[in-house]
């Protein structure tokens, strides 16, 4: 079984920040967003009894499990670099439009594009109209600043909400102009609590970085965010892939537990496995609790 572990931090009732744990009766609730797949199909029907969760090496009791009851805060992080011109951009716009139209009314969405500059085209909102209108204005130009764009997108995650923060990143190439390195942005993803899915449109081989190398980089970033890398060989596949990502998000389990036997501050390695059920578990590799200022 593939074991990519991880949770996101959230709180029980009165959530102040989707990243920081919130205390309830002296114990902070942590929410762990988990995908369980059998091949490309979600595994349904699991309960708290099916999950084994270990926080900093200490087994924890899963308090409750929910599926698809918490709204999504979906940040669309889309590559508009020069290589996306023509049919690719047309297909990306069509795929994004369909995805946005498939969201539930309670879900929120935002659009951030990146080429060299990152631009917050539409801020997080439940109103679909501005985003749908903005899609047609997307133009391809410039180099690819994926890491910096993604870092900025993570900072725009919603506060004061108990929605599930998700970044859906699309890129067709290798970052070639960011200030941040791959490892720097991976660490920022881990600390952010944002589920990160990356859809890659595979490119021809580039000198110094084969297709596999780019895919490995994107996989590493997705794993840091407890998500997946999805691969398309043609922009015509994007509509179907975006729909699969949404299906995956809808079928994820949200485990809530109250950590016991572990210190609060710092990085928490979290491991999730199954008992009495089969499937590949994908979740964030852990969560980070900042020291109070």
């Amino acid at each position: 079984m593939k074991a990519l572990w991880a949770p996101s931090v959230l709180a029980g009732l009165a959530l102040v920040d989707a990243q920081a744990p919130v205390f309830r009766s002296g114990v902070e609730a942590v929410r762990v967003d988990v995908s369980v797949m059998n091949g490309t199909n979600p595994v349904p029907g699991l309960t708290a009894a099916n999950f084994v969760l270990i926080d900093r090496g200490v087994p924890q009791v899963v308090d409750h499990v929910s599926v698809d009851t918490v709204p999504l805060s979906l940040m669309l992080v889309l590559d508009t670099s020069g290589s996306m011109s023509g049919e690719r951009m047309t297909d990306l716009i069509a795929a994004t439009r369909r995805l946005v139209q498939s969201l539930k009314p309670v879900d929120s969405t935002a659009l951030l594009t990146f080429a060299e500059p990152a631009e917050l085209v539409v801020p997080m909102s439940r109103d679909r109209a501005p985003l749908l209108a903005a899609l047609d204005g997307m133009k391809a130009a410039g180099a690819t600043s994926l890491y910096d764009g993604l870092f900025l997108a993570l900072q725009m995650r919603p506060e004061a909400t108990d929605d599930r923060p998700v970044a859906l990143v699309f890129s067709d190439g290798r970052d070639n102009v960011s200030w941040l390195s791959k490892s720097s942005v991976a660490e920022a993803i881990r600390r952010s609590g944002v589920i990160t899915h990356i859809v890659e449109l595979e490119q021809d081989q580039v000198r110094g970085a084969g297709v596999n190398a780019v895919s490995l980089i994107l996989s590493e970033l997705a794993e840091a965010g407890g998500g997946r890398r999805w691969s398309a060989t043609s922009s015509r596949d994007l509509r179907e892939l975006f729909a699969k990502v949404l299906d995956e998000l809808r079928s994820r389990y949200l485990l809530t537990y109250y950590p016991t036997g572990v210190t609060r501050e710092g990085w928490h390695d979290v491991k999730v496995t199954l008992k009495g059920a089969g499937g590949d578990v994908i979740a964030r590799p852990g969560y980070f609790v900042a020291t109070p200022q």
Binding site: F151, L152, S178, W179, L180, S184, R191, T291
Partner: peptide, 13 residues
């Protein structure tokens, strides 16, 4: 981004 990343790493998100 450089300054923001530094802030994230020193627990000032």
């Amino acid at each position: 981004v450089a300054l923001g990343h530094l802030d994230v790493m020193v627990d000032r998100p």
